[in-house]
């Protein structure tokens, strides 16, 4: 038996209540339960988490390899989505 037979899992940890789970790293495990146990031992030895998600890496769909490609272009030419786009007369408050 080789660890090749053990799928790769991505580990997400919620560090405390009120925060979202964030990616901590990855590990190999034969099933979800072992992945959770291993994630606890590997990524929360110093109380770094109150909740863990494990997700099979193969189940993740990612955007294309180049993180600067046209996939993200539609956001680039819409500065009016940001509050700083708008001119407001001086002295107007709470806006």
């Amino acid at each position: 038996m080789t660890s090749d037979g053990w799928p790769l899992w991505e580990v997400f940890v919620r560090s405390r209540r009120g925060l979202s789970h964030t990616h901590a790293g990855s590990l190999h495990a034969p099933d979800a339960e072992m992945a959770l146990r291993n994630a606890r031992d590997l990524y929360t030895r110093r109380s770094e988490g109150v909740s863990i998600w494990v997700v099979p890496s193969a189940a993740i769909t990612a955007s294309s390899p180049d993180e600067k490609d046209p996939f993200f272009d539609p956001a680039a030419d819409k500065p009016y989505r940001h509050p700083t786009f708008y001119e407001i007369p001086e002295g107007v408050k709470h806006l």
């Binding site: 799928p7 034969p30 099933d31 979800a32 099979p56 193969a58 189940a59």
Partner: peptide, 13 residues
């Protein structure tokens, strides 16, 4: 154990 309980459907999608 994993094979028995998940029928191999464990992250190898």
């Amino acid at each position: 154990h994993a094979e028995k309980h998940t029928g191999g459907n464990n992250g190898k999608a």
